[in-house]
């Protein structure tokens, strides 16, 4: 492979891989505390993108019940400058976090309090995902909504530089995605590793009953976990939506499924594992040769099988000893 196309693929892989990483972290946080997989996470991802789009554009002109309503008749205050766009992204992610908290209250907590079969939590979260996705379709239709090109102000759309005599083009949005993801990972690493909240979260993950004996309000930290998880999912949704368009109510489904491959590859419940898994899958997809690009969507799942065969605890997972 030529150096220029190698660099190109590397950048593509890192950008999409870092989105996979922050998205999959949402799964991991919930899994490490509750030991269940929140199947509504893909729907929260979709919602994040739609929330940000609502703030930035203010109307859905194509279809659905909300057609014809314009939130900002004089133009959206969140459009036109990078700072305001960033603010809209954060607000969208917060709204997604709030929805995740709501999902925990409505679908997970009632199950926990009556000690139901954990499999039922899967079904109820799948039910929530079904409701969310179909509500989106009902409200704004199934069309693709692209962010207007001037939404984040005067930003150069792509950077190009030369390696030898070949030109490498990197879309600015890819660089932004990569940078935002790195910042997000650093902040999360700090919060969990260095702050009191993080300490409490780790304690709850280690043993909820011990944590509650030590005066940690387990239910409150479960809510915090769901908020963080939804925030990360919603942020990932906005990032992907900015790069490729908000591709209809179902556009989170593929990410939702690939996210599962990411967390198994990295090691269930491991935060560095989710990051490593996301980057590995992003890079593996970027380096699929062009003639096999139709099989790109299967790469993540093929890797999942390989890891189950050779290293079932995942790349960075710890080997759990089964207790009786």
């Amino acid at each position: 492979m030529e150096l220029s196309s190698f660099v190109q693929n590397l950048m593509n892989g890192l950008a999409i891989g870092s989105v996979y990483a922050i998205f999959a972290l949402g799964y991991t946080l919930v899994f490490s505390i509750l030991g269940i997989i929140n199947f509504a996470h893909g729907a929260v991802f979709t919602l994040g993108a739609y929330f940000t789009y609502t703030l930035v554009v203010g109307q859905f002109e194509n279809n659905g019940l909300l057609k014809g309503i314009n939130l900002f008749p004089d133009g959206s205050p969140f459009s036109g400058s990078p700072v305001m766009f960033g603010l809209a992204t954060i607000l969208g992610a917060c709204a997604a976090g709030a929805v995740a908290v709501l999902i925990e209250r409505l679908a997970f907590r009632p199950m926990r309090s009556r000690g139901a079969d954990p499999l039922l939590a899967l079904v109820s979260s799948l039910g929530v995902a079904l409701v969310v996705v179909n509500l989106i379709q009902l409200l704004v239709g199934a069309e693709i909504y692209n962010f207007p090109s001037d939404a984040y102000g005067e930003v150069q759309p792509a950077l190009s530089f030369k390696i030898g005599d070949k030109v490498v083009i990197i879309r600015t949005v890819q660089l932004i995605i990569f940078a935002v993801s790195l910042v997000m990972l650093a902040v999360l690493g700090y919060v969990i590793g260095r702050t009191k909240v993080g300490k409490a979260l780790r304690a709850v993950a280690e043993s909820p009953s011990t944590a509650s004996l030590l005066g940690i309000s387990v239910d409150r930290f479960i809510l915090i976990t769901f908020f963080l998880s939804g925030f990360l999912g919603g942020l990932a949704g906005t990032l992907v939506g900015t790069a490729f368009g908000v591709a209809g109510p179902y556009f989170g489904v593929v990410y939702g499924l690939k996210g599962l491959a990411v967390i198994v590859l990295g090691g269930l419940g491991s935060i560095p594992g989710a990051v490593a898994g996301g980057l590995v899958i992003g890079l593996a997809e970027a380096f699929v040769p062009a003639e096999y690009s139709a099989y790109k969507d299967a790469v993540a799942f093929a890797l999942l099988f390989v890891i189950l065969l050779v290293r079932p605890q995942g790349l960075l997972g710890r080997n759990l000893i089964q207790k009786v």
Partner: peptide, 14 residues
């Protein structure tokens, strides 16, 4: 008696 929400760590360290 209702089962405690989660009795043991099921995942890793966040």
């Amino acid at each position: 008696p209702p089962v405690a929400p989660t009795t043991d760590a099921k995942g890793g360290t966040p």
